[in-house]
Design a protein around this nucleic acid. Structure first.
Lengths: 147, 147
DNA sequence: TATTGTTATACTCTATAACTATA
DNA sequence: TATAGTTATAGAGTATAACAATA
């Protein structure tokens, strides 16, 4: 039997606001991120590689929910800057593992410091309840994004 | 006295996840939006004009948290499609009010229908608690974006 | 044939800088 | 001078289509 969900009329309007708020927040974060040489997407990839170790183009594309072609462009930019390097995949010649170089590790750490600085300031202006609400929304947002 | 906020170590990591989730959700929504001729930004502007009536470039830029120049480009695209039209400002010759044309009203309604269709499907896969959590996050997100 | 990755191309979004017109 | 709007320009991010190499 199909699942029937009835929403109050206001729910749709609010979801639209969610979309608007999402766009605004992302623009703000992107703008705040600029200032060193790393872009938003590049930072995200460095974070992935730092957290999980070497990954393939397809892995990274999946993790960030972009197409492999788009990820390929981001990786090329990082490679140009000497922040990531290629390693052959041990068993599958088609795949390529990307890992952080020493510079990449350093860049990732510097970046994390910067990000914490801004986030701490911004978050300090939210009260604890707002913060809890935001963090609680992370999982539902991911579910909605991947549904 | 300065406001001191102490966060648990996990909070920063979670905020990073919030950023990632924000990006993923926006990409998903953008991708889902394509299919007719209106882009994401254009749809947002139609929504603003439909909800609040004619507004100036600066008003719209503020509402969407973009620069006036960026809004000008979006408005030009909408004008090319015959969806918005200019009206002189009654008292200030520098300002220009943009309002929906008949086509614009129709486009906005068609768009809202489409959006509801996708949103309803996506939302149906969230449970009521997730939905509440998401909607509760809207205001904190806006505060964070504008802080 | 199917999968992984890349190159080529194009478009949206956004920003900054410089300009015009009006207040 | 200050404000509202636009034009010109540039860069990031993303997508689709077409291709090469490997499984």
């Amino acid at each position: 039997m199909a699942k029937i969900v009835t929403l109050p009329p206001s729910a749709h309007a609010s979801v639209e606001e969610l979309l608007q708020a999402t766009g605004q927040l992302l623009r703000r974060l992107r703008a705040e991120s600029s200032g060193d040489n790393l872009t938003w997407s590049q930072t995200a990839v460095l974070g992935q590689l730092g957290k999980h170790g070497p990954k393939t183009t397809a892995d990274l594309a999946r993790a960030e929910a972009v197409k492999p072609q788009s990820m390929s462009a981001t990786l090329a930019a990082l490679e140009d800057q000497g922040l990531v390097e290629r390693q052959p995949h041990p068993t599958d010649g088609r795949q390529i593992l990307f890992g952080l170089t020493k510079s990449g590790v350093a860049a990732r750490e510097a970046r994390a410091r910067l990000k914490r600085t801004w986030l701490s300031g911004a978050i300090a202006q939210l009260d604890a309840s707002d913060l809890r609400t935001l963090l609680a929304a992370v999982e539902p947002m991911k579910r909605l994004a991947n549904s």
